[in-house]
Nucleic acid binder design. Structure first.
Lengths: 116, 116
DNA sequence: TAAGAATATAACCGCTCAGTTAAATAGTCA
DNA sequence: TGACTATTTAACTGAGCGGTTATATTCTTA
């Protein structure tokens, strides 16, 4: 029932993952998860340099992950792809699960248990 | 209800995405989705060079995405993280949706409609 | 028009990484 | 042991990318 994904899709998919494969971009996306923000605000929240944030925002925009809106001197960005939150949710869940497994294993070693 | 993800998670998450941000590795993972395979078989199915596949398999193994099993001369690899299939499903769905939207837009332009 | 603020761009550097080629390792079988 | 097979590893190269610094652009306001 599940179709194998065609070769032509491998590269665009890899490109999408590539966009998410950088801590700074993830920090920017996380910042935008709580709503549309101008560049300066994103700079504040991520603690990265202005030029750096601007550069990454441009990449994210080109990739179609964030949308751009200009208003006077400021430029506002917002998430523009439902993919982002879904992916982050899944990866985060997996990391949490992984961490929990490690803890449980440790507890078992100590002869203890917690709800698994 | 949704907790913001902590800074310490950004890098490991980025690393995970990085593993998926390469067409060859995606091809390898796709190959392994139909079951455990030895290196030579993966080489065949992906059409990449043997050394290249071996290198990527090592990376995927180090990242915990695939498991390794040795049997005589051959080495068998298999998917070892539920994350992989989940992520690929989501990305593929999104790409399909995106493609469908484009088609629909085109149909609308032509004054036609199909089930949306 | 001049000054200043918000954002974008250009140039540069160091590093990582994908792919290739060639050699090494490990296991099988005669 | 020696030939042969499957896989791994080492060394190298070229391209891409993240970050910084400095400069440019765009818009507002006085």
């Amino acid at each position: 029932m599940k179709k194998p994904l065609p070769d032509e899709f491998l590269e665009p998919i890899a490109d999408t993952f590539q966009m998410l494969a950088d801590p700074t971009r993830l920090a920017i996306l996380r910042s935008l998860m709580t709503g549309e923000k101008n560049v300066g605000r994103v700079v504040e929240e991520t603690g990265r340099s202005q030029a750096n944030v601007s550069k990454h925002l441009k990449m994210l925009n080109s990739a179609g992950l964030v949308a751009r809106r200009k208003e006077g001197l400021q430029v506002f960005y917002r998430l523009d792809d439902p993919l982002v939150e879904k992916l982050c949710d899944i990866v985060c869940d997996t990391l949490v699960d992984s961490a929990r497994r490690k803890v449980n294993k440790h507890m078992a070693f100590l002869g203890k248990h917690n709800g698994d």
